[in-house]
């Protein structure tokens, strides 16, 4: 098993984060935006795990579990919002079309 150094892991995390950010900025589909958000969260979690491994501290893993739970909740809420939007008769998943307060 190869052991990655902290720098390499950080680089990977930054790459993941940038991929997620680019996804959010470029994609207009709400589903894909949610997925990109999860990628960004995972990048953050990866940093925690790497830091925990580096300093031999369990808090990194604890934070990872917390982020995992957070990501699950966020996805659930996001999907629920999308379903409600669909139920109220919105024909599209385009995020830019929902910029007005009236439904």
């Amino acid at each position: 098993m190869t052991v990655f150094s902290l720098n390499e892991t950080l680089l990977l995390a930054v790459l993941l984060f940038v991929v997620g950010l680019a996804g959010i900025l470029v994609r207009r589909n709400l589903l894909f935006m949610l997925m990109s958000l999860d990628i960004m969260l995972n990048a953050a979690a990866l940093v925690f795990v790497a830091a925990g491994a580096k300093w031999h501290d369990a808090s990194g893993q604890v934070m990872f579990l917390m982020i995992l739970a957070l990501a699950a909740v966020e996805t659930a809420v996001g999907l629920a919002v999308i379903l409600r939007l669909h139920a109220s008769g919105r024909p599209t998943l385009d995020a830019d079309s929902g910029n007005l307060l009236r439904g």
């Binding site: 207009r28 935006m33 910029n99």
Partner: peptide, 13 residues
């Protein structure tokens, strides 16, 4: 303040 999420995210980034 145009209400577009992606626009706000771009500002944050």
């Amino acid at each position: 303040q145009n209400g577009r999420v992606r626009w706000y995210a771009a500002w944050i980034a």
